[in-house]
Amino acid sequence: MEWFDALVQGILLGGMYAQYALGMALMFGVMRIVNISHGDLVILLSLIGISMASAWGLGPLPVLIVLVPLAVLMGWVLQKAVLNRVVGSDPLPSLIATFGLSIALQNLMLQIWSANSRSLPGHGIESQSIEIGAVYIGLLPLIVLAVATGLTWGLDLTLKRTRFGRALRAASADVEAAAMTGINPRAVYAMATAAAVGILGFAAVFQALRSTVAPADGPAQLIYAFEAVIIGGMGTVWGAFVGSMVLGISQAIGFRIDPGFGVLAGHIVFLIVLATRPQGLFGKALA
């Protein structure tokens, strides 16, 4: 029963990781842009959300409603102002540019919010739970998982069925051929990054509700997102979702073995996948 509980808690934790990983799946998995500032953007959005909540007395839902459009705008500006200048077949320029952005964002946040940990008041939602059999399931983690599932489903459908999704997949397969078909790759990329950071708006609210955030927390979120995308396989949205579950379950089980082993257990599973199936669980092997 204890292990079944660990499994359930792992899946719920995976729901949180999936919200980080989806934006990464879009930027890294599809566009091949390495965004080192991914985690810092989550933290920045969280802190903005927390400040809005305390300044205007907003509950979690109004914060989410304001934060997601703001995140979309931030993503669009990020692509237009920074990433469109460095995007190309070589991933190194985007890596260096966003590495610099990551350090700048961390210091900016430190300046504005100090190093203190903060969280978003959930007005009781964070402590409610549902009892199923002998397992307690937190209401908030359940909402996080449901939202993650919805976002994954929506993103997958958007990529497969819409004009924007087809244009993005085409540009990712061959930028020049996409332009020859009338696609403006920069406009498509700006929309994609806007969507990716928009999803981080959801992650930011739930992260701040679930636990605390501090300006230096970004890099850890970045690692979890990278790991989830690579475990699942590049370029597959549901792969990133399942990768997040694998990571969450590994950590939860590792945590039951020894409280200090939880995060490490996730890294070990990631390394095992990388060593035995480098294309990821759902990725196609490179010819």
């Binding site: 087809r166 997949r169 085409a170 397969a173 061959d174 051929a177 996409a178 078909t181």
Partner: peptide, 14 residues
């Protein structure tokens, strides 16, 4: 220069 990983129809739909 087709879009690999996409179906014939999706290539044309682009």
């Amino acid at each position: 220069r087709l879009f690999t990983g996409m179906s014939v129809e999706d290539n044309l739909r682009v």
